[in-house]
C-alpha cells in the first residue's frame, strides 16, 4: 500500500507516513492536488540539478514542463496590504518544472532595480545570468530529439530520432 503510488522522495518521512495513513490509495488518486503541495522550492543550483535528472528520467517516456511566471512570492492578502500601504511589491521570476509526478521550483531574484542598493543583490543579479546560461545549456543538452535541418549538422542533435518529416521550417524562416 505504501509503495502503491510513487511518493515524492524529497518529503520528510513523517509527512509520508501521515499521508499514507490518512488517505486511502483511491482517495489520493482522486486528489492529485495533494501532490501539488509537495512542490519543493529549491535554490537555483539544486533546481538545475534536479531539472537535469528530470530530463534524464523522461527520455524513454513522459514529458517535462517548465513554467516561468512572474511572482511576488507573497499571498494575495499580503499583496493587497502592501499596495494599500503604498509599498512597492518586488516581483521575481518563479521557475517551476514538473514531469507530472514531481514538481520542483526556484525563484530568480530581481535583476536590475536592487543592483545598486547592495552588494548582495549584485551577486544575485550575477546568479540570475548564470542561472539563465546554465538553464539554456541544460535545455540544449537534453533537447537532442529535435530534428535538425538536413542541410547542416552543426548540432549534435539526432539521437536516432529522425522519423518525423520536416513539417514547418519554411513558414517560420520567411524573410521579413
Amino acid at each position: 500500500m505504501v509503495g502503491s503510488l510513487a511518493q515524492p522522495t524529497h518529503l520528510p518521512p513523517y509527512f509520508k507516513l501521515r499521508k499514507v495513513s490518512s488517505k486511502s490509495a483511491r482517495e489520493r488518486e482522486r486528489e492529485p492536488s495533494l501532490f501539488a503541495f509537495a512542490m519543493v522550492l529549491l535554490q537555483p543550483d539544486p533546481f538545475l540539478n534536479e531539472l537535469t535528472s528530470m530530463y534524464e528520467r523522461t527520455t524513454e517516456r513522459g514529458s517535462v514542463w517548465v513554467t516561468l511566471k512572474r511572482s511576488s512570492m507573497k499571498s494575495k492578502a499580503k499583496r493587497n496590504k502592501m499596495t494599500s500601504a503604498g509599498e512597492t511589491i518586488e516581483y521575481r521570476c518563479l521557475v517551476r518544472a514538473t514531469d507530472g509526478k514531481k514538481t520542483i521550483s526556484t525563484v530568480m531574484e530581481c535583476q536590475s532595480k536592487l543592483v545598486l542598493l547592495s552588494f548582495e543583490y549584485k551577486l544575485s543579479a550575477k546568479d540570475h545570468l548564470r542561472f539563465q546560461a546554465s538553464y539554456a545549456t541544460i535545455l540544449k543538452a537534453h533537447m537532442s530529439a529535435l530534428k535538425k535541418r538536413e542541410r547542416r549538422d552543426k548540432k549534435k542533435a539526432g539521437d536516432g530520432q529522425t522519423k518525423q518529416e520536416d513539417l514547418k521550417k519554411p513558414p517560420k524562416k520567411s524573410s521579413s
Binding site: L68, R92, C93, M143, L146, K148, K155, K169
Partner: peptide, 27 residues
C-alpha cells in the same frame, strides 16, 4: 515544433521572458 533550430529561438524567448519577469513588464 520538432526542429532543433526552433530550440535556439526558444532560448532567446526564454531570456526575454526571464528579463520581463525579473525586471518588470515595462523593461
Amino acid at each position: 515544433t520538432d526542429q532543433a533550430q526552433d530550440a535556439r529561438k526558444m532560448e532567446k524567448l526564454n531570456n526575454i521572458f526571464f528579463t520581463l519577469m525579473t525586471r518588470g513588464p515595462d523593461v
